[in-house]
Simulated scan of single mutants.
Amino acid sequence: MNLDDQIKQLENVRKEGSNKVFSMYLNTDPSDPEQQGGEWKIHFKNGLRNFESYLQEDENKEELKNFQQVKKKVEKFVRGNEQNYRRGIILFATADEEIWFAHRVQTRLETEFHWEETPQLDQLKKLRDEFPKSGIILVQQDQVKVVEANMNEIEDTVYYEFDVDTDDWRQFTGPHRADPSMGSGGKSLQQDNFKDRYEANKHRWFKSIAPKLDKRAKDHQWEKVYVVGEPDPTQELKEQMNKPIDDIIQKNMLDHEESKVLEEVFG
């Protein structure tokens, strides 16, 4: 289920009586100056304790029991992921287990806790709008790297390289940095030769890879498309793709870490 479907499902949730919905946005960002000492642990502990104390004072035994069931599951999730925190946690839960949505996210959150009839979705929707499912295409003359991201988190990375032996693009996975225009037989063009060959064939090269990228954009439901690279190859690729390009960033980042690419694209 994609995020839009999950949000729609959560929008339809309404509980009555003692079986309410717990909503949590927890800022665990280690780069936040206010989190240097792991203060989020205190906020988390206090947030749960405040609800429990309120329900104990209210003497609503059934609602207290439901909250304590939710609290137990939430604490287990947080403890179980303590070594793998990113920048925040978004969580929705009910005692009857009809709702359980728990995600670690790579975006900073405002810490909030709610125990109400409906899940509080404002921050989740805002993040969905700010960081939609995107395809980021990093391009050089004979190399293309695609970074797929959702909610500012990397979902997949694929690489394409033009093979002079087969006169076609080949796809591979995993970190890779080949010599320019390295063929499958191991022959590489001399650098002074390559520039001439690129100029003579760039239209055909990018025309042949554009359908592969368009198909991936459709199959993976990209909402936004960004092209990153030097002016000539980025413009050439834009002209060949059917999928509209939302933004072009004229900066060579093909060999940069994916996290740095996301910072450049989303700011």
Results as ranks from 00 to 15, higher is better:
residue 248 I to K: 12
residue 102 A to Y: 07
residue 241 M to P: 05
residue 169 W to N: 03
residue 178 A to Q: 06
residue 34 E to F: 09
residue 49 R to F: 09
residue 94 T to D: 02
residue 43 H to A: 11
residue 62 E to P: 00
residue 211 P to T: 00
residue 224 K to T: 06
residue 113 F to I: 04
residue 10 L to I: 00
residue 20 K to A: 00
residue 1 M to Y: 11
residue 203 H to I: 04
residue 151 M to E: 09
residue 160 Y to L: 13
residue 147 V to T: 11
residue 197 R to P: 00
residue 235 Q to E: 15
residue 247 D to Q: 15
residue 265 V to E: 01
residue 5 D to H: 09
residue 137 I to H: 05
residue 50 N to K: 15
residue 54 Y to C: 01
residue 164 V to F: 05
residue 93 A to E: 09
residue 190 Q to V: 08
residue 169 W to Y: 05
residue 158 V to I: 14
residue 139 V to S: 08
residue 146 V to E: 06
residue 129 D to H: 05
residue 212 K to G: 01
residue 234 T to E: 07
residue 164 V to P: 15
residue 171 Q to M: 15
residue 220 H to M: 09
residue 122 D to W: 04
residue 142 D to F: 10
residue 49 R to D: 11
residue 168 D to M: 12
residue 229 G to D: 08
residue 260 K to A: 12
residue 245 I to F: 09
residue 137 I to S: 05
residue 170 R to Q: 12
residue 204 R to K: 13
residue 124 L to P: 02
residue 227 V to L: 14
residue 200 A to E: 14
residue 178 A to S: 13
residue 90 I to M: 12
residue 142 D to W: 08
residue 236 E to M: 13
residue 144 V to Q: 10
residue 107 T to A: 13
residue 165 D to I: 11
residue 30 P to V: 01
residue 41 K to N: 07
residue 173 T to Y: 12
residue 17 G to W: 08
residue 244 P to A: 05
residue 43 H to D: 11
residue 48 L to A: 07
residue 139 V to Q: 13
residue 55 L to E: 00
residue 17 G to D: 10
residue 186 G to F: 07
residue 107 T to C: 04
residue 264 E to L: 10
residue 113 F to R: 08
residue 195 K to S: 11
residue 119 P to M: 04
residue 239 E to N: 14
residue 107 T to D: 05
residue 257 E to C: 02
residue 223 E to G: 14
residue 97 E to L: 08
residue 168 D to A: 15
residue 52 E to F: 02
residue 164 V to E: 08
residue 195 K to V: 08
residue 157 T to H: 02
residue 76 K to C: 03
residue 251 K to R: 15
residue 252 N to W: 02
residue 219 D to C: 01
residue 152 N to L: 00
residue 24 M to I: 07
residue 76 K to Q: 12
residue 11 E to G: 03
residue 205 W to T: 00
residue 238 K to E: 14
residue 24 M to S: 03
residue 28 T to S: 11
residue 13 V to E: 13
residue 91 L to F: 07
residue 143 Q to G: 08
residue 16 E to N: 14
residue 2 N to G: 04
residue 234 T to M: 12
residue 169 W to T: 06
residue 76 K to L: 10
residue 238 K to I: 03
residue 244 P to D: 07
residue 94 T to Y: 02
residue 265 V to C: 05
residue 263 E to S: 13
residue 127 L to V: 10
residue 17 G to K: 10
residue 143 Q to L: 05
residue 76 K to A: 15
residue 20 K to D: 00
residue 66 N to F: 07
residue 195 K to E: 10
residue 21 V to A: 01
residue 20 K to N: 04
residue 219 D to G: 01
residue 161 E to T: 12
residue 85 Y to R: 09
residue 72 K to C: 04
residue 203 H to Y: 04
residue 143 Q to I: 02
residue 264 E to C: 09
residue 103 H to R: 14
residue 214 D to K: 11
residue 83 Q to L: 09
residue 159 Y to I: 03
residue 259 S to K: 14
